[in-house]
Design a protein around this nucleic acid. Structure first.
Lengths: 193, 193
DNA sequence: TGTACATCAGTGAACGCGCGTTCACTGATGTAC
DNA sequence: TGTACATCAGTGAACGCGCGTTCACTGATGTAC
């Protein structure tokens, strides 16, 4: 049983939450200290009582964003399994949905940032690598027993690439066509339960 | 027959070239006016005699980067066709190669920027959309006659997603495993010539 | 329960730096005769 | 071919703004007795 959070800890979480949203909406470079603090209902001066630097905030924000969506995806897998339905279908249809196309700020952090990830500082890159591994592991968990990690990697890459291209094409018929193409291709090929 | 380029035009191209490399290496936000001018062997003061704004430079740089790699890919398709080999194999093996993994600054601009594309100004987004369409068209050209655009979209998305995740994992066994997984999956499924 | 004091979380002004943009000026290139 | 002048490309200093970071201070929370 964990002790109740202090006032300070509650505030800290509120800041990280705001940063996790800003990070996915605006990218690494689009996370400003003053903006995030304002979103959290504070003034910017108090920032360094919570974080050593902007980079330290970004590291926590990546982790938070990844964990949040990971939890949702894993619940989706559990639920579909419990109902005797295809877990892979649940993942593919959830990931390549209209809601995820438009909901960047609450969606997968890998899709929101992957082309920027290789350019970050070593500390941030390490967090990014961890998120990529977790994404692959999540996909593998959705595959039937005995599926290879290689299959999970390809599917994860297709999910990420598809969502990014669809977001660039826009929340319109073009973007939707992109999502639909990968949904049906992935399910046709891998959903053999 | 086009007239020979003026001194001014030669310089302009040199600046755009430098920007096209910086853009892929550092992302949109990582292209600085002073840096690019320095790379082109000039001082920053002359910049606005060539471009209306930094955004105008970025627009030209996206187009330049896309066209350059597009030419290379299309040549690869022609060459393999002329030899009676699989054009799709040439594209997949070229795109998902060690050289492309490490050569971000001279590689595909979509892979280098796609997670940042949806966040750009309308003018830059329009250029990005064009590059995505051209990428899909290039893949479709590599597919056998009669292949659907949907197939080309899925393959393009897989190429982009795979390269990005591999770059994040790094130029090591993990990144290579990512590339290899998608190479063999794509060829096994679509290379049926 | 109440008072005095220490600790803590947050405020807001200020600093320094980088970067996009502007502009007066210089040296080179090209043209007229 | 040579001279005078106009045009053009590039220079370098300066400006303004945004942003990460620092810091002295304030008001609130918690603790000792």
């Amino acid at each position: 049983m964990t002790s109740p959070p202090t006032r300070r800890e509650v505030t800290h979480e509120r800041i990280v939450d705001a940063a996790a949203r800003a990070l996915r909406r605006n990218g690494y470079a689009g996370v400003g200290v003053a903006d995030v603090m304002k979103q959290a209902g504070l003034t910017h001066g108090g920032f360094y009582a919570h974080f050593e630097s902007r980079d330290a905030l970004l590291a926590e924000a990546v982790e938070r964003a990844g964990r949040d969506t990971g939890v949702v995806m894993n619940q989706r897998i559990e639920t579909s399994r419990a109902r005797g339905e295809s877990a892979l279908r649940a993942v593919v249809e959830g990931y390549l949905s209209d809601a995820h196309l438009s909901g960047t700020e609450s969606g997968c952090v890998v899709a929101a940032l992957s082309s920027e990830m290789p350019r970050q500082s070593p500390a941030l890159l390490a967090r990014a690598v961890e998120r990529v591994r977790k994404l692959v592991a999540m996909v593998q968990r959705a595959l039937p027993e005995g599926a290879s990690k290689e299959q999970a990697m390809v599917i994860a890459a297709t999910l990420v690439g598809t969502l990014q291209l669809a977001r660039t094409l826009g929340a319109n018929s073009q973007g939707n066509a992109m999502l639909a193409a990968s949904r049906s291709a992935l399910l046709a090929q891998y959903d053999t339960e």
